[in-house]
Each structure stands twice: as structure tokens, then as C-alpha cells.
Design a protein around this nucleic acid. Structure first.
Lengths: 156, 156
DNA sequence: AATTTTTATTTCAAGCATAAAATATTTAAG
DNA sequence: CTTAAATATTTTATGCTTGAAATAAAAATT
């Protein structure tokens, strides 16, 4: 007869599954909070924020395909989001010199200004939501997540 | 003059932000793989899988509102997904005795059978995607994620 | 130079997701 | 008992998201 099973006795694949389910729940919860925050304070959405964040980081603008690869979303998806951002005067679309297929996208001056405000508040919100995690927790967490990032490149 | 900054010198809020961004990227990557798997092998979607998983776990079925609370999605969202699952003969909707507002939802026999196949393959896929993580990694990861789960209850 | 292949993007149809409003029913208060 | 408040769900409008098909231009092949 076996002793009462502890967590460590669980098979590795079951433990991985449980970890994934927990991780998924956490990200969904945080995403929901972010959506709420963006809607209430900036009348915008998470996908729009993600696009603007990517554009803000790249000084020279991004091509549509680069954007979709960066954000892990489909090509057609980016088209729609950019369309609405252009309408709102936050983003500019210009032709790429020497390649008439491609489009280069970047934030307008207004877009940069707006994003800077959002980013500040966003950081504060994340900080608050993850207040539970101290430096020691992060020391443990970040390297593991970093190693997981590697699987993205390997398996795709 | 300061020494070259290491990761640990980064302010706590910046570290939390970076951790969140990594975690988000990982979950999005895994979700994309799951979607691909569900589409190619079972001609279904992640939201449908999530709903079926929740129903499979609860032997007595769930009310629409319980389902939406459990999955962290909106009420109307569940309505649509359940509608399609009912159409496909995977889910059954019955009235709740003594409350004519509420609906109880559960898997059909066929739905249970189909889900069992999916769940087996799903577990194998997750195990594969997170093959990088051994018991020691999980020992570090799971407790932290569990503590994060607590914020869901506190802050909502 | 003409043809094929690859690359970049958009369009399309279907499903997912949300918030807000509407509907219907139950519970609580007066 | 009647009205008011709370609960359970659906409907609606809008936007997100996908995969696949369409369009167009560039690059590679023949």
C-alpha cells in the first residue's frame, strides 16, 4: 500500500498540465483587468495597445508582416486593427520605398504621446497586479519563462 | 560611478512588467499550438474545448452563469458557444427544476466520448510543449502561480 | 524575356468576445 | 399583495481573430 500521494508524486505530464492550466488562468485574469483598464481610461482595447506598444518600440516603423509575426497574430488581423488606428489618427501607413507590396506602419506624434500615457499607467497596473511577487520570486520565474521562450523558435 | 547593471538591479516594477510580457508571449504561443492541434485533429476550437473540459469535470452539469464565471468569459459568449455545441450534438441543455430562468448544461454521451479523446491528446501535446520543464522547475513555478491565483479572488 | 515561385498584404466568411440593453423570473421590502 | 431589487440568460452592436482565398508585386528559374 502506498502513502498518501503528494504533489511531487504526480506524474510529470500531469504536473505540466496543471501548471499550464494555472498559467493560462492567471494570464486570462490579468488580460481581463488590462482590457477593463484600457476601456475605462483610454477608450481603447488590448489588441490596439499591443500594436501601439510594438510600434513605439521600433523607431523606424514596422511592416505589416513584421507586426503580425511580433504579436503572434494573423496577417488579416493586423490589417483591421491598423485600419482603425489610422482612422483615429494614432498610426500612419506609408509605402515602402522599393517594394510596392509592403506597407510601413508607425505611430503619429499624437499616437506616441497617447501611448506614453497608457504605458505609464499600464506599468503601474501590472506592478499592482503582481505585487505579490518579490525579487526572489522573479529570480525563480524569469529564467524558466526565458527557457520556454526558446521553444517558440525551435518548434515552429 | 556604478557597476554595469545586472538584471537584479532593475527596479521591481520593471522586472514585474518584463515577467508579465514573457508569460503572455508563452501562453499565446501555446494557445496558438493548441488551436492548430484542435482544428487539424478534431475540427474544433479552443473555446469549445474549454467549455467541454469544464462540463466534463462537473458531473452534474453547470448553469450558464457558472460556466462563464469558471472560464472568465462573458455571459453572452457562453450562449453562442453552447448553441453551436448543442447543434453538433455534443452538449445538452435542460431547464433547472424550480428556477425557470436558469439553464443546466452538460455533455451528451457522445460529447463525453469525444472529449476523452481530445483530453488525452491535449495532455500529450502540453507535455511535449513543456518538455523543457522538469520536476525541479515545476517545484519552483507552481507555488508562485498558485499564489497569483489568490489575487483573482482578492481583487475582483 | 517568359514563367514559376515566393513574399506582402487584403478580403472574406465564420466564429469568438465584449459591454450594454432587453427579457424574464425570483427574491426581498414595504 | 404589490412593488422594487436582484438574478439568469439572451440579444444586439461592435470589434477581434482565424484560416483560406484572392490580389499584387518581387525574386528566382528556365
Amino acid at each position: 500500500m502506498t502513502l498518501p500521494s503528494s504533489k511531487s508524486d504526480m506524474s510529470l505530464n500531469k504536473r505540466r498540465l496543471r501548471m499550464w492550466i494555472r498559467m493560462l488562468r492567471t494570464t486570462r485574469f490579468v488580460e481581463a483587468r488590462l482590457r477593463e483598464f484600457l476601456r475605462d481610461n483610454y477608450d481603447t482595447t488590448l489588441p490596439r495597445f499591443d500594436v501601439m506598444a510594438a510600434l513605439y518600440r521600433s523607431s523606424d516603423g514596422l511592416k505589416m508582416s513584421e507586426l503580425s509575426k511580433l504579436l503572434l497574430v494573423s496577417n488579416g488581423n493586423v490589417t483591421g486593427i491598423i485600419e482603425r488606428l489610422v482612422t483615429d489618427g494614432l498610426v500612419l501607413r506609408v509605402n515602402v520605398e522599393g517594394d510596392r507590396r509592403a506597407m510601413l506602419v508607425c505611430l503619429t506624434a499624437h499616437g506616441r504621446k497617447v501611448f506614453e500615457g497608457m504605458a505609464r499607467d499600464h506599468e503601474a497596473l501590472i506592478n499592482d497586479l503582481f505585487a505579490e511577487l518579490d525579487d526572489e520570486d522573479l529570480d525563480g520565474l524569469v529564467p524558466v519563462l526565458s527557457r520556454l521562450k526558446a521553444i517558440e523558435d525551435k518548434k515552429s
